Computed example of a mutant assay.
Amino acid sequence: MARGEATKIRVHLKGAHQDFIVFVDDNETFQNFKIFGTGGQGGAQGSYNAPSRADLENEFDTHDEDTIIQRILGSGEAQEIEMPERQGNTNDSFNSTKTRT
């Protein structure tokens, strides 16, 4: 069963050494998930990783995520993106080979 297909907002901020991204969960209230970095690859494309505390300190002079998210949301560029649908098991902890007693 397909699930998870949606349009999301990605806010991209070009940093000095790497780019930073926040995915916005709710477009109306700008609730967000978490900070991601591009690992110095540049741009908003490619793989996203959690930046290290040192990366955040070097770029923003703090590692406080609330402060950093506010800076990214305030200075970054909002981009609407399509999130692909997901497929697969809904409960990976259930193993159909287990037998009940």
Rank of each mutant, 00 (worst) to 15 (best):
T90Y: 12
Q70A: 15
T29M: 06
E80F: 04
G39N: 03
K98V: 08
K34N: 08
K34G: 00
T7R: 14
F94D: 07
S93F: 13
R71L: 15
S47K: 13
T101N: 15
D55Y: 02
A44M: 13
P84E: 07
T99S: 11
I69C: 00
T90G: 08
E85N: 04
G42W: 02
L73M: 04
I35C: 05
I9R: 03
R53S: 10
E82P: 00
Q70D: 14
D92E: 11
D92R: 09
G4C: 07
S96C: 09
M1H: 11
N89R: 13
S93R: 14
F33D: 07
T67Q: 14
G46D: 01
S52P: 02
M1T: 09
Y48G: 02
G37H: 03
H12T: 04
F36E: 00
F23I: 12
E28G: 01
F23N: 05
N49S: 12
G39T: 01
F23T: 03
I72K: 01
Q87H: 13
H12L: 12
E5Y: 02
E65G: 01
A78V: 09
A54Q: 15
F60P: 04
R71W: 11
D26A: 05
E5R: 13
D61M: 10
G40V: 01
H17N: 13
A6M: 13
F60E: 00
G76M: 03
Q18S: 14
Q87E: 13
G4I: 06
Q79C: 03
R53C: 00
I81P: 04
D26F: 06
T7F: 11
I69N: 04
T29N: 12
F60K: 07
T97I: 04
I81K: 05
T99E: 11
A50E: 12
I72P: 02
G15H: 05
T99H: 06
K34S: 08
Q31L: 06
A16L: 11
I35G: 02
Y48S: 10
R100Q: 09
S75A: 13
T101L: 14
F94R: 10
D92M: 08
